[in-house]
């Protein structure tokens, strides 16, 4: 039981990170029907900005952890959002209205560009961050197993829940959210009704990038090791999470992320660490066979 609880904590933490990245995929898909393959790289840039910021704050003498954390989150979100906006402006907007494949290929190209840009400017080696938020507490002291929950895991969970709630209310209640939902349903009609479609799409990219930046900051804090290639695997997993939950659905992305994180943790914990990815992708296959639109996805006819 104690061991189960620990693996649950491990899985939910990992799942939160997958979920935060997956939202970026799902929102972009929902609104323009394309997979933004450069999104993993956006997350990687967020992580690099986090490490950069933490070292700069350290040099500037900002050592009070909560302040440093808030500053880094803000800076990383602002700059990463700028990257998200620029990617859309440079690589996708000029191709809007052309074939769907063109935008997809442009996305893959953008992903290569960003990866190599970080490789050239930041070097090929690892960047490391010494533990900033260390410590934690014992949740449950069973005779055979001690369940621990670290502060950084708590921060990740709380931040994920807060951001999810904030995003859900933005989409449900604000003018921007209404515009996004309108664009999702029928872009042509939205345009006719006076919605600035380009601006709405830009803001969607900005929002997705902001969440990816949070995931990047959390990963840098939690694991302490980043490299220019990290966006690839994380992007793949988050994309899987988005598809699992039903691509285009915001709660679906979060659910998919959580599910993927937990499958990985429990499979590692009770069966074999070696085959955890096989289990995760196996579940994806099963879900897609019985629910082709994902767990919470709406059936749609036109989109590829």
């Amino acid at each position: 039981m104690a061991y189960f609880l620990q693996q649950l904590i491990n899985g939910v933490t990992l799942g939160s990170i997958y979920g935060l990245i997956a939202i970026g995929y799902t929102m972009v898909y929902g609104i323009i029907g394309m997979i933004n393959f450069a999104h993993g790289e956006i997350y990687m840039i967020g992580a690099f900005l986090a490490v950069l910021c933490f070292s700069m704050l350290g040099m500037a003498g900002v050592t009070w952890v909560p302040l440093a954390l808030v500053l880094v989150l803000l800076v990383a979100m602002v700059f990463t959002s700028a990257y998200g906006w620029a990617v859309e402006r440079v690589a996708y907007r000029p191709l809007r209205g052309s074939q769907r494949l063109a935008a997809l290929i442009s996305a893959i190209g953008m992903s290569l560009v960003l990866q190599n840009y970080v490789l050239l400017t930041q070097g090929a080696g690892l960047k490391t961050l010494q533990p900033i938020v260390s410590g934690g507490f014992v949740v449950y002291d069973a005779p055979d197993f001690v369940v621990t929950l670290s502060y950084i895991q708590i921060i990740i969970l709380v931040l994920t829940v807060v951001l999810m709630a904030a995003f859900a209310s933005v989409i449900a209640r604000t003018a921007l959210g209404r515009a996004q939902r309108a664009c999702e349903q029928d872009r042509g009609m939205a345009l006719l009704l006076g919605i600035d479609v380009d601006r709405t799409i830009s803001l969607t990219f900005v929002m997705g990038a902001g969440l990816a930046a949070v995931a990047g900051v959390m990963v840098a804090l939690y694991y302490g090791v980043i490299d220019f290639f990290m966006g690839f695997i994380a992007g793949l997993k988050a994309f899987t999470a988005a598809v699992l939950g039903g691509i285009g659905s915001l709660p679906g992305a979060m659910l998919g992320g959580m599910l993927l994180g937990m499958v990985e943790a429990f499979w590692s914990g009770y069966f074999s660490v070696e085959y955890k990815d096989v289990a995760a992708f196996g579940i994806l296959v099963l879900v897609l066979i019985f629910r082709p639109t994902g767990l919470l996805g709406q059936p749609e006819i036109e989109k590829v």
Binding site: N10, F145, V225, I233, A265, S268, V273
Partner: peptide, 13 residues
């Protein structure tokens, strides 16, 4: 990969 927490819990158990 970056996350080996599940493996670590298994070692601990």
């Amino acid at each position: 990969e970056k996350d080996y927490t599940a493996l670590v819990s298994k070692l601990k158990a």
